[in-house]
Design a protein around this nucleic acid. Structure first.
Lengths: 150, 150
DNA sequence: TATTGTTATACTCTATAACTATA
DNA sequence: TATAGTTATAGAGTATAACAATA
């Protein structure tokens, strides 16, 4: 017998295989709309919040301030995001979606819905529900809090 | 009611959240051994095969030839990999692990075992088995074949 | 001409830290 | 000094394509 386990012996292997496939499919879909998955997550967060400070977004998305700045730069160039000064604290900025940005969110959300439905429709309803339940249990019991970006 | 679904409404969201957490944890573990997850996958593939052409590895790992070249360069620098000429076809090369490389594989495999056991031990045995079963069913029914790299 | 493999370019995400302006 | 945010740098992964050598 070998002392070296096979890659396929690990749950993490199958998890990544499925997760990467779903993500790559979704990345292709949103890229047709001119954004990356990280940009979509960013826009989705701002859609509810109306306006947020970069630091608050960094906290919410589990990213560094630097990463947020770079993402914001790209979305600004694409005309989907606005950066406004804070009159009370001249160091602070506020990020919000432009009208173009807000218009795009439902389109991207529909792609997300479609992608998920498409990917998991090979499961029975019971399998799908069981998968959701176990994944959420894992997140809860391990205390995971950082939403996935990529 | 909103026309925009929440991010958490998607199975893909929970899947990525768990998958990214497991992968990042594992990346940290193997990085202590001086390799990346992609390098580990590469080494694990060569461990069984003894020697392979870059093109065969690219096919097996679902990567481009260029990506394989870069990975091989790094492993060469670390002394874990050897690149030899093929006497029959002077265009072709053969990649194989050095003794140092072969020695490292069981160490990395043990880390992979530990990481998986650690991560999923918050599940009951039944939950763990069910998760494995559903993930493998998804892979099978969707015809996924590319092993996860990152 | 086609194939093998390397190299070049470019883009995204990640992480760390230096830096600017303001408090 | 401390904080908010930007900018710089570097590493890793991905993708595409140009390229050299050989078949």
């Amino acid at each position: 017998m070998s002392t070296v386990s096979d890659l396929t012996a690990h749950t993490g292997y199958w998890l990544r295989m499925v997760s990467n496939a779903v993500s790559q499919d979704f990345a292709r879909k949103v890229s047709d709309e001119g954004v990356t998955v990280a940009e979509w997550t960013f826009m989705r967060a701002l859609y509810d919040a109306k306006a947020m400070a970069p630091s608050a977004l960094a906290e919410k998305m589990g990213m560094t301030k630097g990463a947020i700045s770079k993402l914001a730069d790209r979305l600004l160039e694409k005309g989907l995001l606005a950066r406004t000064d804070n009159p009370d604290d001249k160091r602070a900025h506020s990020l919000s979606l432009t009208d173009a940005g807000r218009t795009k969110v439902p389109v991207l959300a529909a792609l997300a819905d479609m992608n998920d439905a498409e990917y998991f429709d090979v499961l029975t309803r019971e399998e799908h529900e069981t998968l959701d339940r176990i994944l959420k249990a894992l997140v809860e019991r391990r205390g995971l809090r950082t939403p996935p970006v990529d």
